[in-house]
């Protein structure tokens, strides 16, 4: 399904470009940004953008591109998992163990790949060589690895608010279904248990499940980026409007010195402005116009939404 692969590639490229600034300024965001870059490269190796013959030809024309694709895809999924898991803890024994998990998966399917008697470049390389146990094992280990990482991703976000994390849960579930389906049909093909038409139908189920899963996970990542941009834009506008009130009234905004600003400096500035305006109003030093009261009310709703409402862990 070239269309879904191309859409997934385009979405990943878009996310990678949009989040360059975030990755530069926020070290915590680099893992997921790198996942989108590596994921885009993995999708590029499928041949829907640059012909497979060109890519694999550059590597000798012996389907080495399939191994590269698997290495990139597994790493991309693992990076997304690390980004999600890093929310729980910066450096736990669990996150260290995951390096080993990644290493074992990569080495395992790479070793199996080396035992495949490979022919010339083919977009259906594994399916063409399904008679070889090494080919079935190589693909199965890779798919089991992706499925396992997807399951860990679902577990990592299970305690979070579903309203924000459902794309990770549904995307992970779709990827797992796709992987299990493909493994089952590879073994069926290896055993020649069904006719060619049924086999083709079985194989065809992989793409829609897998690539929709990928698109959903990437959409989940993007949703946080958009959410942050949206809030920061609204906050910038609110601060501008509140500052006009304090300037008009000639107020000195009492602002605490440098301190904890969990939600970023904008939230703190808006908070200080709001409290100062309220104080001055109660003290009777400022009379707000109807328009200013509306501005105050809107800005306050924006800040209140964030006050003490941190994500449940």
């Amino acid at each position: 399904m070239v269309t879904l692969q191309t859409v997934a590639f385009a979405v990943l490229c878009l996310v990678a470009v949009l989040r360059v600034g975030s990755a530069r300024s926020n070290p915590h965001a680099r893992m997921s940004w790198l996942a989108s870059v590596v994921g885009a490269l993995a999708l590029l190796t499928l041949g829907s953008v640059i012909p497979l013959g060109v890519l694999d030809g550059a590597l000798g024309g012996t389907n080495l591109i399939y191994l590269v694709q698997n290495l990139l895809a597994t790493t991309a999924f693992w990076l997304v998992l690390q980004a999600a898991a890093s929310q729980e803890s910066e450096d736990t024994p669990h996150s260290r163990r995951r390096y080993w998990v990644l290493g074992v998966i990569l080495v395992a399917f790479s070793v199996a790949f080396l035992f495949i008697d490979r022919g010339p470049t083919s977009p259906t390389f594994i399916h063409d060589n399904v008679d070889q146990l090494a080919a079935v094992l190589c693909a199965s280990i890779y798919l089991a690895g992706i499925g396992g990482i997807s399951l860990q991703l679902m577990l990592a976000v299970r305690r979070r608010r579903l309203v924000a994390y459902w794309p990770f849960v549904v995307g992970g579930a779709l990827a797992i279904v796709a992987c299990i389906n493909e493994i089952v049909w590879l073994f069926i093909a290896h055993a020649h248990a069904v006719d060619a038409r049924t086999q083709a139908l079985g194989y065809a189920l992989f793409d829609p499940f897998f690539y929709l899963g990928v698109i959903l996970i990437v959409a989940g990542i993007l949703s946080f980026t958009v959410r942050k941009w949206n809030r920061e834009t609204q906050m910038t506008l609110a601060i501008r409007q509140l500052s006009r009130i304090t300037q008009r009234a000639g107020l000195t905004s009492a602002t605490a010195e440098d301190g904890p600003a969990t939600g970023g400096p904008q939230l703190s500035v808006a908070y200080d402005l709001l409290i100062s305006i309220h104080d001055e109003t109660v003290a009777g030093r400022v009379q707000l116009t109807a328009r200013e009261r509306r501005v105050l009310s809107r800005a306050e709703a924006l800040v209140t939404r964030e006050l003490g409402m941190a994500e449940a862990r």
Partner: peptide
């Protein structure tokens, strides 16, 4: 008290999805 109150207010001001935004924002 006012200065400490502002520090406390700042520390409570966390985006609803602070952890998600930190990793994916």
């Amino acid at each position: 008290a006012e200065n400490l109150a502002r520090l406390l207010g700042r520390s409570l001001l966390r985006p609803r999805y602070a952890a998600g935004e930190k990793s994916f924002g």
